[in-house]
Nucleic acid binder design. Sequence first.
DNA 1: AACCGCTTGTCCACAACATGGACAGCAAGG
DNA 2: CCTTGCTGTCCATGTTGTGGACAAGCGGTT
Lengths: 262, 262
Amino acid sequence: MAEKTVQGAQVVGRVAQLLRIVGRSPEGGVALPAIVEASGLTRPTVYRLLNSLAAEGLLDHHAETGMWHLGPEIYVLGAVAANRYAIEDLARPSLQRLADETGESAFLSIRRGDETVCLLRVEGSFPVRSFVLHEGVRFPLGVASAGLAIMAFLPDAEVDRLLDDGGARAARFGPAHTAERIRANLEVTRRNGYTVNPGLILEGSWGMGAAVFDRQSNPAWALSLTGIEQRFRPERQEFLGKLLLEEAHKITQQLGDQASGR
Amino acid sequence: MAEKTVQGAQVVGRVAQLLRIVGRSPEGGVALPAIVEASGLTRPTVYRLLNSLAAEGLLDHHAETGMWHLGPEIYVLGAVAANRYAIEDLARPSLQRLADETGESAFLSIRRGDETVCLLRVEGSFPVRSFVLHEGVRFPLGVASAGLAIMAFLPDAEVDRLLDDGGARAARFGPAHTAERIRANLEVTRRNGYTVNPGLILEGSWGMGAAVFDRQSNPAWALSLTGIEQRFRPERQEFLGKLLLEEAHKITQQLGDQASGR
DNA sequence: AACCGCTTGTCCACAACATGGACAGCAAGG
DNA sequence: CCTTGCTGTCCATGTTGTGGACAAGCGGTT
């Protein structure tokens, strides 16, 4: 989080931070005070920056509700950038199949630095759903099934670096997120190929995930399923894990097949 | 271009400008000097800002070539924003049909302030192609068939405002872009429904376009076709125009059908 | 080799610019 | 009526961004 920003560019860091905060907010948008709180900046500063960003079209300010959203310019730039980073088209059919066959909600997350960001969601048919995860939500690697699935296939040195945060992660996401318990989970994940999150973030809200690998065989994305504990009993985990791995492999393969140009 | 930036936010404007410049560059990326030139800022400033943006993941700097690209963070944010602005999924099939049936290249552009931005491109089968237009390219409204098609269905006051510089903004893209000639084109466009750009930007490079309307009946997007003059003879224009209008109507309709929530 | 033109990367004195404390105005709730 | 929490704005302050200037690298031309 505390990047050593390039010298002479404080604002750029702040702007990026604000964009991320607004981006990870749920569909209804975020209000100013929440952004102030999340950013740790003073209110006038946030106010001014948000308005400038809105003037550039990077953010949108709903006049009635006062809520802030990502703006059209971000959408436009992102659409252009997507030509270089396209994976969603490949992943969406997999998510649909996962949701259809399991009844749970299925997600695609992408690794972004030391975090995962949820990109796509397909709701399952099962009537009880968790709303911990949705498009734009970020978790540090090691938290939530997507981040665990990815982390399990990172080099040891990387894992060590990520876990060595002096307990900040555990403090934010619950006492279950100690370095030791995460390591144990990664161990099991490496053996099975898929990971299980037994309600670590929110009690009763379970998840499973499997990593998708880029052309250099780095775990860059993850598929995951979420639902309530009762739907993730041990006897069903094997079935769900197999499905996740199948779909993850499919995507990994398709990514490899693509001509490496563009 | 010269927006009255919100007070106390010079950098935000600069940052947004840099993102746009990098975003509209072709696939190979842009080099620093070109960005300096395009932005009108001094080199150290651009250098510093670009590096900060890259540190935040908003830009990407290819180490070998030195080229700048839109970064993963933009992609991620854009993917999240796309939930609010989705049109590409609706438009892609139309573009495909247009390209298949005509052999020309088909494009989707979106209105963004006083410009259009090209979002999607589907190459046609015809072996001679123009590369004036590609994803990320921006033209002022009134230039290129997409911008003309959109402008033709804007309120008169809006049109006046856009042209009250005598077409100076448009004239950057060729001497044919005077206010009078643009008005004449808009006139014809309103009658036909579709617009024809008879090589105004680049001699011999023709285009045709039709507007797509949002739920408030504003022309917010445009479909367009481009190709060489010989493929846009009067007798073929009617055929191409009819196809464009059909597909544009299809998309407009689908947009209207969508539940207005999310 | 010496020179040129063009590039990237870095420094630092200067002052322009972003900053944030403070205040006004408004709406909702007790 | 007072309190709480919000949005929007001002402006003195000094932190922060700025850009002129210089160093160094690279490839081509004479």
